[in-house]
């Protein structure tokens, strides 16, 4: 199952902030059921996109050496999001430590605020792997790799900003 809920990164500043976009298409399966005749983007999928934006920001801060998993989140929605809109996810790194990190984030459509959230991520070590997961690096693999390249493409490095 494909589980990438952002299309690409548009800005990435290591250990500071990341911005990604997601275009909502009526062709996406979930719009058929959510809801018939009234397609709106399911709120958890919007938050998943924001969490992927923030999770990659937290993961990159440690060179993707840690498995970063979503631990806790509080969110507030101000309006629905509809097919045809482009959502902009912005995540700002608030805390970072050996055990995890926290980002605050917004979801916008144009200038319109759709949602805001505070997301806590935890680092999961090899000894804390859930049953059945044998790969000690199970987060930043597979389809996320292509996404990481879009982050690299727009990354601002401290050296680049200094000049």
């Amino acid at each position: 199952m494909r589980w990438t809920w952002i299309d690409r990164f548009t800005a990435f500043e290591s250990r500071k902030a990341a911005t990604a976009v997601k275009c909502l298409s009526l062709a996406e399966d979930h719009f058929a059921d959510h809801f018939p005749g009234f397609p709106v983007m399911p709120a958890p999928l919007i938050l998943e996109g924001l969490a992927q934006t923030g999770g990659i920001l937290v993961g990159e801060a440690n060179g993707f050496r840690e498995n970063v998993v979503l631990a806790k989140m509080s969110a507030k929605f101000t309006r629905e999001a509809y097919p045809g809109e482009q959502l902009t996810y912005t995540a700002t790194l608030v805390d970072l430590g050996p055990t995890g990190g926290r980002v605050s984030g917004t979801v916008k459509s144009g200038d319109d605020l759709v949602a805001e959230a505070d997301i806590l991520f935890a680092h999961v070590g090899p000894d804390q792997l859930p049953p059945g997961v044998t790969d000690s690096k199970f987060v930043f693999t597979g389809e996320l790799q292509a996404l990481l390249k879009t982050a690299e493409a727009v990354a601002v490095t401290p050296a680049a900003t200094a000049g």
């Binding site: 631990a71 806790k72 608030v94 805390d95 430590g97 055990t99 995890g100 926290r102 806590l120 935890a122």
Partner: peptide, 21 residues
Amino acid sequence: SIDFLDIVFRLERQFGVKIPR
């Protein structure tokens, strides 16, 4: 248990100290 991680982060910011968990 995950709240303990959250609490440590918030205390660090609130008090401006590093708190090894």
